[in-house]
Amino acid sequence: MEVLKGAIALIGYGLAAIGPGVGIGIIAGNAVQAMARQPEAAGMVRTTMFLGIAFTEALALIGFVLFFLA
């Protein structure tokens, strides 16, 4: 039972990482596009990008914690 629980937790974390992974990719990609179009706004774009990544990453972090809790 213990082994099964651990395996399910692993799968759960893997699933939880999909969404944030895609999301962070989209954010970073669009940020690169924005920086390429307007290099003078690169500082602002970078900050906003980190913010967006932080919010998106929170989901993966919750998954990480739940993996430990399981």
Binding site: E57, A58, L61, F64
Partner: peptide, 13 residues
């Protein structure tokens, strides 16, 4: 709740 939690866990994780 989520802000401090994610702030701490991000670094930790």
């Amino acid at each position: 709740l989520v802000r401090p939690f994610s702030l701490a866990v991000r670094l930790f994780a």
